[in-house]
């Protein structure tokens, strides 16, 4: 038994290398001095460390990293709060037809956003919020509602009904029950929801590229632009790739358990 298990490690380590290979290349390339770019040595460790690539990449990406934070933080907070209220109502304070409304809401998280893009751009132009971060926040909040509602509805479904009934007996109305009984026990669900929104908005490209201009580009759009140009060296591009993924990777490393729970609910399994 023991021996046959030991023989599994080569396979596990092979896949470990497969998943880490790109990470290795990003790190060693981004640390090599600009002159040291000969193709033949791309897999070798750098002879000397040089952080100049990072300062060059930051020159190009810095403003867009700040844009991304200004976009992601309010959007994730607002969307998760709205999702929490929706989830509470759909799990514990149902109105007639709530069980039909729920899948109708969920469909919104699967649609290809191309299918609403032209009306969306038209509407945002009419409202005068096209091309800036506030408009993009609004869009991410709205299209984040289905998954946020799903995460909180699943979480509240496991809250005992007696807890809600007890609050009612004490004379609490719906808002009182929500704020005094339900919200205080919602912290785990909020962590899952906020991490999910943070990651998916940070990583979004389609809405960002269509709805923002150069001064409000989030980091995905800015990175794609320096990658497309021939002038920017690979060393700088790899440093940029690392800068662009660092916030979400750090969240993943620190709060991985909650990240995984969000992923699972995305498959409709609570």
């Amino acid at each position: 038994m023991k021996k046959s298990r030991l023989s599994l490690y080569p396979a596990l380590i092979f896949f470990l290398i497969f998943f880490l290979l790109p990470v290795y290349v990003v790190i060693v390339t981004s640390l090599k001095p600009l002159g040291d770019i000969s193709l033949d040595t791309m897999w070798s460790l750098p002879k000397s460390f040089d952080f100049v690539n990072y300062s060059l990449a930051w020159e190009k990406l810095g403003p867009s990293v700040i844009n991304s934070f200004q976009l992601v933080i309010p959007a994730a907070l607002i969307a998760s709060f709205l999702g929490s209220m929706n989830g509470f109502v759909l799990a514990k304070w149902k109105f007639p037809g709530a069980d039909v409304v729920f899948p109708v809401i969920l469909f919104g998280m699967f649609i290809p956003y191309q299918s609403i893009l032209i009306p969306l751009v038209t509407t945002m132009r009419e409202l005068g919020i096209y091309g800036g971060i506030p408009g993009l926040i609004l869009v991410h909040v709205i299209y984040g509602l289905p998954i946020m509602t799903l995460i909180f509805r699943n979480y509240y479904a496991s809250v005992p009904n007696e807890l809600i009934e007890a609050a009612k007996v004490d004379g609490a109305g719906m808002l009182g029950t929500y704020f005094r009984v339900v919200l205080p026990i919602s912290i785990p669900a909020f962590i899952v929801a906020i991490i999910w929104e943070f990651t998916s908005i940070w990583n979004d490209f389609l809405f960002a590229v269509v709805l923002t201009g150069p001064s409000s580009w989030p980091v995905t759009v800015a990175l794609n632009n320096i990658a497309g140009s021939q002038i920017v060296q690979w060393n700088v591009q790899m440093a940029g790739a690392l800068i662009a993924s660092l916030p979400t990777v750090l969240v993943y490393i620190i709060l991985g358990r909650y990240f995984l729970r969000g992923l699972m609910s995305g498959a409709l399994k609570g």
Binding site: V26, T29, F205, L223, M238, A244, T248, V249, Y252
Partner: peptide, 18 residues
């Protein structure tokens, strides 16, 4: 194994292009 899920398709694309 799960780490790539935290990264955007854009970053993945830029790195794999190389």
């Amino acid at each position: 194994y799960l780490l790539p899920m935290a990264i955007s398709f854009i970053v993945t694309g830029v790195v794999w292009r190389w």
